[in-house]
Amino acid sequence: MTANICVKVQSEAFAMDDGYENTLHQRTDVGAVVSFTGLVRDFNETPEVIGLTLEHYPGMTERTLMQIGEQAWQRWSLQAVRIIHRVGYLGPGDPIVRVLVASAHRRDAFNACDFIMDYLKTQAPFWKKEHSHQGAYWVKERHPDQQDAARWESLVDGPSH
């Protein structure tokens, strides 16, 4: 089966359940859908985040997300992969990223969704600038994110914690 992967990088808002109906439309072979939606928190490096600006590297971003989707596709038995990521200015509570994975069985969908988020956070060229009452600053990379992504390197199916 050709890889059913769709990647979108956009400044427009998207819904919490984006891609759900569209992916399942007139399909009865899907046994499991796992999705992850990441939201803007009102606290992070400072206690009161009033918004953030997301910058990316157009072209490389889409290509990287597609490659991450393809890696997941090769690794697990999947039926659909959707990755959507916002750029530009976002306020607290706004959905920022959404990954949806459909497969015949839940374990593949859980693992693939987890994998895609881990790789997205450490490889896709996005940068967050947080705005707070103390001023604006660029968010620093987090070591735990690197560790999360590294879990997948030595594993065939999924990580053990």
């Binding site: 990441g38 896709a124 968010v139 620093k140």
Partner: peptide, 10 residues
């Protein structure tokens, strides 16, 4: 050639 800091998306 692009230079950039570590990524922080997601």
């Amino acid at each position: 050639v692009a230079f950039f800091p570590p990524v922080t998306g997601g």
